[in-house]
Design a protein around this nucleic acid. Structure first.
Lengths: 115, 115
DNA sequence: CCCTTTATAAAGCAACTGCTTTAGTACGGG
DNA sequence: CCCGTACTAAAGCAGTTGCTTTATAAAGGG
């Protein structure tokens, strides 16, 4: 098993998505940018806690934060979501290729029996 | 933010995928079923540790385990991977819809200026 | 009927998470 | 120039994770 930078990125990415609050934040940001305060209004936890979640999302590359007056507007970076999607798709593809081969093999066997 | 069963499934699913060893196991199983011992041979950790990882994967629904003689053959359940992929795809779609609307709006503005 | 093989259970431990509280920083309004 | 608003930093704490070691179970093989 390799220990590459890409693997570390996937660690952080899937870990970031494994928290319900963070997934909810991602969904909100997919509908438009928002400040920490605006996001925090939707949750029962403190703004500090939300800020920490945003730190996790930023470190995973899923969001970026700018500066505007006193606020730090958060923006989704959907390219990184693509990284996770392709990993999943790759596994699914390998699996279905194998299933196809199994089916072909079974068809050959049936044909052999019929003769 | 809702607190549904679906959300809990996603928690477990993304958490399961956030570990490099478990992702590697998923990749191996996508190429074919394997026993605990066979999987453990590829890692430096003990078979017990691998067995625990398999427990996490099974609880997330990503794999199932049968029985054959003394072994517990592990099998990938790719339908659950689909669950994660659709969540990601949904967020990406919302985002790109918004981008499309922004572009349309910008085009309208440019047209207005040109007149 | 033991002995080996394959696997899980349980306990213990360091490291990490998610959250809180308390402090501190930075920016802008009046 | 202070004051309020928006945010981050740091410390502390309960709960979880990833791994180890030790112990136990279950299924054959000779």
């Amino acid at each position: 098993m390799e220990h590459t930078v890409a693997e570390q990125r996937l660690d952080a990415l899937f870990a970031a998505l494994s928290d319900r609050t963070r997934r909810d934040i991602v969904v909100r940001l997919s509908a438009g940018d928002a400040t920490v305060k605006e996001l925090a209004e939707h949750y029962t936890m403190t703004m500090q806690a939300v800020s920490q979640h945003l730190g996790v999302l930023e470190r995973s590359g899923l969001i970026s934060r700018g500066r505007h007056r006193q606020t730090r507007p958060c923006r989704l970076e959907p390219a990184v979501l693509e990284t996770a999607a392709s990993w999943i798709e790759e596994s699914r593809r390998t699996w279905s290729d194998r299933m196809d081969r199994l089916e072909t093999r079974l068809a050959e066997l049936r044909e052999g029996e019929a003769r």
